[in-house]
Design a binder for these strands. Structure first.
Length: 480
RNA sequence: GCGAGAAUAGCUCAGUUGGUUAGAGUACGACCUUGCCAAGGUCGGAGUCACGGGUUCGAAUCCCGUUUCUCGCUCCA
């Protein structure tokens, strides 16, 4: 555990030092759980987005993309249930210093002590639900005292008052109307459901994909990029015939896992976890978890939201949210949701690719072994020494190839140091111009992972970069 | 929020029982040198010692408060 903590500190430090991730507002003392992406960070992030976006909208001809706004009519969040139910109730035990959810304390207590007494059980639970729907926090606390619920650790009943947090950021516009920063991108998809059907002539089954920022007023947000208050989601809502719910749920579960495995970070680092308590909108749910430096944690969830959202929006907006089908007439389709945290995905790749490696000369090198198709810089063009016209030749070559790939030119250090700099930011290839280049137009190509070098003709450079870094070959594997 | 730990240069860290103008390595800039894996040399820029009070002749160091970060409890993408 101590080792993991050290590694996490090294990772945070490395990502700042090399321009991947900066703490937000650092010059003013920082702000909890908000981070900025530097040049290489945003490049890596954009490459992940590009891969996801194409995996959805380019490979599947029945998935289209949208980009809905962050601010929406406040009725969207009443309809979706987020105003009422997207909150946390918390109670602390003063002796054990542990924090609990009061509704779960009561439910667990009832299960344990009244499992034979159906009548009593129902009575208590209905009181609990009454309190929950009326936001009657005192009522819930009374219930805890009446039942004489004790903390499982301290065995005392010294409880604090119950605290209530809604997890949506609320803001006000100049007309004093409440607006919310969206806590999920999905609602932007549901409210555009009919627009997309009509404009793209979509037929069930079909999906709508979206990448965008979401905001959650987390009470405790931490663990670097893991739990952020402002974060980016990559969500796809797939609309289906209700009777095909199980089929598509399974299909997308497998498809999403397959997608993650294409990063080649180690299959054993991923696992499925069936959700035991589901969000208010879902009927089936599975998480894909990843083994982070601090253990297995959720990165993506696949839910069946059924017709929950479309029915709600039809009720609130009085607009038709059904689809028409000759055999079934008008009906609400079901929805399978795949929802991936982009920042978390970034974190999985970064944390499992950053290595300290002992090399042949006994020294340690720091190398970011990210998949080449995600690398911020595809190749570096370097002169062996900074004299005898080699920098000029290298710069000319750079200017030639920069239209095809994101490249980097550097001559400020000895060649060994330049290689290590590229290792540190995950550049898969380095092309070095030396004295032979002047004679026969050959250069050396040096591979990041093996550190091996080969001599090739300058006309081969583009092909080598393409072969090593292109996305196409990865995308092909999705449908194999 | 509660509990535990922490904060000195971009990064990693030293700094003695309170005592000159707060240091090192590395990184950064310039120049010299350099035929392939963080090479060597010279010079240079860089810090309100997290912030605000207090004790003291004197505070990075002692005391109080605040902020931020890390870990645990809860929740999630």
């Amino acid at each position: 555990m101590e080792k993991n903590k050290d590694f996490l500190e090294f990772l945070v430090s490395h990502s700042k030092r090399y321009g991947f991730i900066f703490p937000s507002s650092e010059i003013y003392g920082g702000i909890n759980a908000i981070y900025d992406y530097g040049e290489y960070g945003v490049a890596l992030k954009n490459n992940i987005k590009d891969f996801w976006w194409k995996s959805m909208t380019q490979i599947h001809d029945n998935i289209v993309g949208i980009d809905s706004s962050i601010l929406m009519h406040s009725d969207v969040w009443s309809a979706s249930g987020h105003v009422q139910k997207f909150n946390e109730l918390l109670i602390d035990n003063k002796d054990s210093k542990k924090r609990y959810r009061p509704d779960l304390l009561i439910k667990n207590h009832v299960e344990k002590f009244f499992y034979k007494n159906e009548k009593k059980r129902k009575e208590i639970l209905s009181r609990l639900y009454d309190c929950l729907s009326n936001n009657n926090l005192l009522g819930i606390k009374d219930l805890i005292h009446e039942l004489n619920i004790h903390d499982p650790i301290s065995h005392t009943n010294h409880w604090t008052d119950i605290k209530y947090f809604n997890m949506m950021f609320k803001i006000e516009d100049h007309r004093k109307k409440n607006l919310f920063l969206r806590p999920e991108t999905a609602q932007g998809i549901f409210i555009n459901f009919q627009n997309v059907i009509k404009s793209n002539r979509m037929k069930i089954p079909f999906g709508i994909a979206q990448i965008g920022k979401s905001f959650r007023n987390e009470i405790v947000a931490r663990q670097f990029l893991f739990r952020l208050r402002e974060f980016e989601q990559m969500e796809m809502q797939f609309f289906i015939l209700p009777e095909e719910e199980k089929f598509w749920f399974k299909y997308w579960k497998n498809m999403r896992m397959k997608w993650h495995l294409l990063f080649n970070l180690g299959d054993e680092k991923y696992r499925f976890i069936e959700n035991t308590h589901l969000p208010h909108y879902a009927s089936l749910g599975t998480d894909i978890e990843f083994n982070f430096p601090f253990g297995f944690k959720e990165i993506e969830s696949i839910h069946s939201r059924r017709d929950f959202d479309l029915i709600k929006h039809e009720n609130y907006s009085k607009k038709n949210m059904k689809v028409f089908d000759k055999s079934k007439k008008n009906y609400f389709p079901y929805v399978i949701e795949t929802s991936l945290g982009l920042d978390r995905c970034f974190f999985t790749i970064f944390s499992s690719s950053l290595k300290k490696e002992k090399i042949n000369n006994g020294k340690i090198r720091t190398v970011l072994k990210i998949p080449s198709f995600l690398s911020p810089i595809k190749a570096a063009i370097l002169p062996l020494v900074k004299k005898d016209g080699l920098p000029e030749i290298a710069k000319k070559l750079f200017n030639n190839i920069k239209f095809d790939f994101k490249l980097l030119y550097d001559h400020t250090e000895s060649i060994g140091k330049l290689y290590r700099r590229q290792d540190a930011i995950g550049t898969p290839l380095c092309f070095t111009i030396d004295y032979d280049t002047c004679k026969n137009e050959t250069v050396t190509v040096r591979y990041r992972d093996s550190m091996k070098q080969y001599r090739i003709h300058i006309n081969e450079i583009k092909d080598v970069i393409k072969k090593e870094t292109e996305l196409k070959s990865i995308l092909r594997k999705i449908h194999n």
